[in-house]
Deep mutational scan, measured.
Amino acid sequence: TTVHIGNVTYHFDNPEEAVKWAKEMAEKLGLRIEIHGDTIRVE
């Protein structure tokens, strides 16, 4: 599972961890997340 924040990509072996981490980052940055299969974007 990959999480994209701007130009930076993070890789997670556990999809649930990826979603949890992306949600925390989105809250901190005042952004929202979009999930497309195994790709998560924070925008």
Results as ranks from 00 to 15, higher is better:
3 V>F: 01
3 V>Y: 00
4 H>S: 09
4 H>R: 11
4 H>W: 11
5 I>D: 01
5 I>T: 01
5 I>Y: 06
5 I>L: 10
5 I>W: 07
6 G>F: 12
7 N>Q: 10
7 N>K: 13
7 N>F: 08
7 N>A: 10
8 V>W: 13
8 V>F: 14
8 V>Y: 14
8 V>L: 14
8 V>G: 07
8 V>Q: 13
8 V>E: 12
9 T>V: 14
9 T>Q: 13
9 T>Y: 10
9 T>H: 10
10 Y>D: 01
10 Y>P: 00
10 Y>C: 08
10 Y>A: 04
11 H>C: 09
11 H>T: 09
11 H>A: 05
11 H>I: 10
11 H>R: 08
12 F>R: 00
12 F>W: 03
12 F>C: 03
13 D>T: 12
14 N>Y: 05
14 N>A: 05
14 N>W: 05
14 N>T: 11
15 P>Y: 15
15 P>R: 15
15 P>S: 13
15 P>A: 14
15 P>I: 14
15 P>G: 08
15 P>H: 15
15 P>K: 14
16 E>R: 08
16 E>G: 07
16 E>P: 03
16 E>M: 11
16 E>N: 09
17 E>Q: 10
17 E>C: 11
17 E>Y: 08
17 E>V: 09
18 A>V: 02
18 A>D: 00
18 A>K: 00
18 A>W: 02
19 V>M: 15
19 V>H: 11
19 V>C: 05
20 K>T: 08
20 K>G: 04
20 K>F: 06
20 K>I: 08
21 W>K: 02
22 A>N: 00
22 A>R: 00
22 A>F: 03
22 A>P: 00
22 A>K: 00
23 K>M: 13
23 K>Y: 11
23 K>W: 09
24 E>K: 13
24 E>H: 12
25 M>K: 03
25 M>Q: 09
25 M>R: 03
25 M>W: 08
25 M>T: 05
26 A>Q: 03
26 A>D: 01
26 A>M: 04
26 A>W: 03
27 E>Q: 06
27 E>C: 07
28 K>D: 05
28 K>P: 03
28 K>M: 12
28 K>G: 06
29 L>F: 10
29 L>C: 07
29 L>D: 05
30 G>T: 02
30 G>F: 04
30 G>E: 05
30 G>D: 07
30 G>M: 04
30 G>L: 04
31 L>K: 07
31 L>A: 15
31 L>Y: 11
31 L>H: 10
32 R>T: 15
32 R>P: 10
32 R>N: 14
32 R>Q: 15
33 I>M: 12
33 I>N: 01
33 I>S: 02
34 E>W: 07
34 E>N: 14
34 E>V: 15
34 E>A: 14
35 I>M: 09
35 I>D: 03
35 I>H: 05
35 I>R: 04
35 I>G: 02
36 H>S: 12
36 H>A: 10
36 H>N: 12
36 H>M: 13
37 G>K: 06
37 G>E: 06
37 G>N: 06
37 G>D: 05
38 D>M: 09
38 D>Y: 02
38 D>Q: 12
39 T>H: 13
39 T>F: 09
39 T>D: 07
39 T>W: 07
39 T>E: 11
39 T>M: 11
40 I>A: 02
40 I>L: 04
40 I>R: 01
40 I>F: 01
41 R>A: 05
41 R>W: 15
41 R>I: 14
41 R>G: 03
42 V>D: 02
42 V>T: 04
42 V>R: 02
42 V>Q: 02
43 E>Q: 14
43 E>K: 14
43 E>L: 15
43 E>I: 15
43 E>T: 15
